[in-house]
Nucleic acid binder design. Structure first.
Length: 228
DNA sequence: CAAATGATTCGCT
DNA sequence: GCGAATCATTTGG
């Protein structure tokens, strides 16, 4: 197993979106290691992508992290109540990102279940069990990711860079709630490309096949007909 | 199954 | 003020 380094993220969003499939989000949170496999992503290509928050070079406080270095987390609030977890890709001042739309729980499933529904997994209705993390808002709730994680560095080197004790304290508290993405296994799978979800306002960009998911995976949020 | 609907906050015009 | 990279629930076939 190894954590992805910054060079992984410093590429075109379309490439990173595909290569993030099968990787694992690892969230060290309140003494537990919440972990889940990425099974569905969407690429947002920045300035020229009408569906992107950074379309046309829009640079507001909300989207500022997208203009920063790759390998950082962009979390935004959607519809007043749900968080969406994104990874900044590309280069500085090229505001691209990948939205993670669905994950498959692989550890601490009771903790994910409690975060989502306040009950352990075995007490959930079967509909709730199968919909635990199959959507961008759902996976954030399950993995305890919210806007406090906006701007967090996925390639955190804070331990190595500590000089003073104060640095160390800060880095430990950072490590207490760190997010990283790991490659753990390399099972083969087929990738389905499809239209992105929820961007009907984006005119011709609404039909670009910039959503990617693992074919046949039961945790994908929206499946194409041929994959049902 | 699919479609309709209400929830609820923030960022921007 | 408006509408959003959503979700749970309800309603109807």
């Amino acid at each position: 197993m190894h954590y992805l380094d910054r060079s992984f993220y410093a590429r075109d969003s379309l490439i990173v979106a595909k290569e993030l499939l099968g990787k694992y989000i690892v969230h060290n949170h309140k003494g537990k290691t919440l972990m889940a496999k990425i099974v569905e992503t969407e690429a947002y290509m920045g300035i020229e992508d009408k569906a992107a928050h950074s379309y046309g070079g829009r640079r507001t406080p909300r989207v500022e992290v997208m203009y920063g270095p790759p390998g950082h987390v962009y979390v935004f609030l959607i519809y007043g109540m749900y968080n969406c977890f994104n990874v900044v890709t590309g280069q500085i001042d090229d505001p691209q990102a990948v939205l993670v739309r669905a994950v498959e729980p692989t550890a601490e499933i009771d903790q994910l279940s409690i975060n989502r529904f306040g009950k352990v997994f075995s007490e959930l209705k079967s509909a709730q069990q199968s919909a635990l993390t199959n959507g961008p808002g759902k996976l954030c709730k399950g993995l305890a990711i919210d806007r406090t994680h906006n701007g967090v560095d996925l390639c955190n080197e804070s331990v190595q860079s500590c000089v003073t004790q104060n640095d160390l304290i800060q880095s430990e508290s950072f490590l207490n709630d760190s997010i990283q993405i790991a490659e753990i296994d390399t099972h083969a799978f087929e990738i389905v490309s499809s239209k992105r979800v929820g961007i009907d306002y984006a005119e011709e960009a609404a039909s670009f096949p910039w959503r990617f998911y693992i074919k046949g995976n039961p945790h994908v949020s929206v499946k194409d007909k041929e994959d049902k």
